[in-house]
Amino acid sequence: MVVQTIGAFLAVISFSLILELPKKHVILAGGIGAASWLVYLLVHASSGSVIAAAFLSSLLVALTSHIFARIFKAPVTVFLVAGILPSVPGTSIYRSVSYVIANNPDLSSHYLVETLQVSGAIAMAIFIMDSLFRLGQKR
């Protein structure tokens, strides 16, 4: 689990290069990504649900992104985008395709539905935090 968390940290930093994240925030974004993946692993291990894991880890990412965005006066996107990446349902998309190739439509559609559910969970998490932080804010 420690190795995987370190992997998440380095993966998000590598992604920062592709997305041109501002240099001074790269390490912080990596930290958010690592924390979110740790939460994902813990929730997944204790509840066995991919959706709950994606939801709670995205919730953490969204919360910390909003806080850091206010501290550093930077757009929320800078932290949010990088931190979300480990939870993105690449695994479900892959499995859905691989079971199509393996001639197993049942499992394939199971993973297709899972992809949509995980995407929905991440969307919900971002939405909740966006709404909370917008309360009482002048437009």
């Binding site: 995987q4 370190i6 992997g7 380095l10 590598s14 290069l17 592709i18």
Partner: peptide
């Protein structure tokens, strides 16, 4: 900010570290 080589390294890093993460 980052040159093309560095971005290529980024792409490679993502592949390697996501494998580690998984």
């Amino acid at each position: 900010q980052y040159g093309r080589r560095l971005k290529d390294i980024g792409v490679m890093g993502v592949a390697v570290f996501f494998t580690l993460l998984l």
